[in-house]
């Protein structure tokens, strides 16, 4: 899933002697260098200013003095709760929709086209518009107020297209032979789905899950007016809770002298994103391997 095997394509000739060829080669290499330079600049800056402020205490203490001092413990908890709510809602919705699109509808049928089209639009909706929507529907209309629940539900709408797309791709990658064999054995479609198709499509689902978690962890604008700013330890899902991203934003923009802790929080966030990414890929690889060798 990570690296599609490179197609057998001849490499192009190493460039001729005429000036256009040389100029383009130079330009392409310098763009790549520039890009690498910017990457190193950003990451280097985060690490250089963030690492000195990181400690175990930073992860386990409550923020003090508007976040200038202390740690981010309640903010980590809120972030995990928001992502948890988001996944609890978006996983069943997303997997169900993907199963419908891949297994129970023809690609050109009107319902499938409508669902697909609306998901395409959903994928492009700006995050601040999700924030407006979540504020109007969950916080006010449904009376959840500024809460972890509102934020998580808003994010669930947001990650849905990513989740559906990769689960659907995972299902489509399952060979048709599996379906035919299951039908020949007289398995019901329900059993086929639970016992064969979904297990075989797990890599796609896991990739979708990782991308979804990544998107949810990275989101700020949709949370400003749904889960809110409160930096206390949340007592329930109906409490307002501040995510890591909102904490970075608040420290950078509204708290003079909050930069050091904003750096440290940014390092925590980026590290979290990296670790989740790598861990899940590994688990998916191993899981799939065992599954196939056993059957």
């Amino acid at each position: 899933m990570r690296d599609a095997p490179a197609p057998a394509v001849p490499s192009l000739p190493r460039g001729g002697t005429d000036w256009a060829d040389r100029a383009v080669t130079a330009a392409v290499w310098s763009v790549a260098l520039l890009f690498t330079g910017v990457f190193l600049w950003i990451v280097g800056d985060l690490v250089r200013h963030g690492l000195p402020h990181l400690s175990w205490g930073f992860l386990t203490d409550a923020p003090m003095d508007a976040g200038r001092a202390g740690g981010i413990a309640p903010i980590l908890v809120s972030t995990f709760l928001i992502v948890g709510v988001c996944l609890a809602v978006s996983l069943p919705l997303g997997v169900g929709t993907a199963v419908f699109l891949a297994e129970f509808s023809r690609g050109e049928s009107l319902p499938a086209r409508l669902v697909r089209g609306s998901l395409d639009v959903l994928a492009g909706v700006p995050s601040i518009v999700f924030g407006l929507f979540g504020n109007a529907l969950f916080s006010l209309y449904l009376g959840m107020g500024f809460s972890i629940l509102s934020g998580g539900l808003t994010l669930a709408c947001m990650v849905l297209p990513i989740l559906i797309r990769s689960t659907e791709e995972g299902l489509r990658a399952v060979p048709d032979d599996y379906r035919k064999a299951a039908a020949a054995l007289g398995l019901s479609r329900t059993a086929t789905l639970w016992r064969i198709l979904l297990p075989a499509a797990t890599p796609g689902l896991v990739v979708g899950l990782v991308l979804g978690i990544g998107r949810a962890l990275s989101e700020t604008a949709a949370l400003l007016f749904t889960s809110g700013y409160v930096a206390r330890m949340p007592g329930s899902l109906l409490d307002s809770g501040r995510s890591l991203t909102v904490h970075i934003y608040d420290l950078a923009m509204n708290v003079p002298g909050g930069e050091a802790n904003a750096y440290a929080t940014a390092v925590v966030l980026v590290t979290l994103l990296l670790v989740i990414n790598m861990l899940t890929f590994q688990i998916a690889d191993r899981w799939l391997h065992r599954r196939i060798t056993r059957t």
Partner: peptide, 25 residues
């Protein structure tokens, strides 16, 4: 099962309409 996945698909597809409806409202 078929009705369940249809229902979930309608729910997912309906979110965009819900967003437009609430923004408009």
């Amino acid at each position: 099962l078929i009705w369940a996945v249809r229902g979930l698909a309608v729910a997912s597809g309906g979110i965009v309409l819900l967003i437009v409806a609430f923004l408009a409202l």
